[in-house]
Design a protein around this nucleic acid. Sequence first.
DNA 1: GTCTATATCTCGATAGAC
DNA 2: GTCTATCGAGATATAGAC
Lengths: 189, 189
Amino acid sequence: MPADTRDRLLDAGAELLRRQGYSATGVKQIVDEARAPVASLYHFFPGGKEQLGAEAICKSGAMYELLIPAIFDVAPDPVTGVRMFFAGAAEHLEQTGYEDACPIATVALEVSSRSEVMRQACEGVFQSWISAGLARFPQVEARTARELTIAMLCALEGGFVLARAQRSTEPLLIAGELVARAVEAALAD
Amino acid sequence: MPADTRDRLLDAGAELLRRQGYSATGVKQIVDEARAPVASLYHFFPGGKEQLGAEAICKSGAMYELLIPAIFDVAPDPVTGVRMFFAGAAEHLEQTGYEDACPIATVALEVSSRSEVMRQACEGVFQSWISAGLARFPQVEARTARELTIAMLCALEGGFVLARAQRSTEPLLIAGELVARAVEAALAD
DNA sequence: GTCTATATCTCGATAGAC
DNA sequence: GTCTATCGAGATATAGAC
C-alpha cells in the first residue's frame, strides 16, 4: 500500500533537495520520482515548487532530528554519543556514494539570499535541532549546552562539505573528534 | 583601465557562484555582470559554463587562501589567529547582508554528485587550504597540525551554513571558539 | 574577438476536459 | 484528483557576419 500522492511528492522532493539542492531540482523531476502527475503537485501545493520545498525541508528536518535521541540514548555517555553520531553520519555518507549528507545544508546555503520562505524553513529546522541537542547535555549549564550543540552542528555541516568534495569521511571524523573532546572538557569542569 | 574580458568573466562568475551556487547562476547573468558578450564566454571557455565555473572556483580559492597568512601573520599567536579569522569572517558576512560566505561551499555541496569537473575543482581548493593552514601550526607535530586545520575548515564551513540560515553570526563565533580552544590545548601539550 | 540572431531545450505553472 | 496540452520565459549553446 503506497503512501498517498502528497506524501510521495514530499518524500521525493526531500530526497532530491538533499542530493542536488533547490535550484537544480525541477518540478518535473519531483513528479516523475513520485510517480505523480504534474497537476497533483499544484493541487496539493498551490504555492508550487517553493511551498513543496519548504514543507519537504521541514519534514526532512523532523526525521533527521529523531536521530539525535536515537543515538544518544543508546550511548553510555554524551562523549561517546558524539563520536557515534559522527561515525554514523560518515558511514551513511560513504554507503550512499557521498550523496546523502545533511538534508537541508545545500538548500540553506543556496537560497538563504533568494527565497525568504525557504530560508525560514531552514532556520526553523536548525532551531529545532539546537533545542533537541541541548537536552542531550543536561550535566552542564544551559549556556554551555547550547554552545556545545551549535558547535556540534557546525562541525557536522562543515564536515559534510569537505567530505563530499573530497569523497572521504576523514574530515567528518576529525570534526567529530574535535567536538567529542570539547564535550569531554565541558563535563570535566 | 578595466581588466580584460576573460578576467571580468571569471570574477563575475566567481561572485555569482559564491552567492547563489552553480545551478542558480545562468551564463546570461554572468555575461551581463561582466559586461561581456555571450560569444566571448564561449570563446574564452570552450567548455562553456562548466569550464568557467571550475576556473572561477580555483581563482576564488587562491584569493581566499591568501587570507590565511594575512591574518595569522599579524596575530600574536595561533590561538589569537584562529579567533581573528572567525571574527573576520563573521564581520564580513554581516556587512554583506549574509551574502558573502565561503566562495566554494555552496558549489561543493551542490555539484559534488553531478559534475566531476566541478567537484575536483572544489577538492583541489580544499587541499590547498589544508596545506596553507598546516603551515600555521609549526609548533605541533604534522599530524596534529593537519587535524587542527581540517577541523578549523569544517567549523568555518559549518558556521557559514548555520549563520546564513539564521542570519546571525553567533554560530560562526561559537564554532571559532571551539577551534581556538582545541588549538590552545594542542599547544599546551 | 565581438556582433546579432537564433536553435533547441527545459523550466515553472496553468487551462479545461473528465 | 488526474488527464493532456500548452503557455511564456529563460536556459545553454551555436551560426555566420564583421
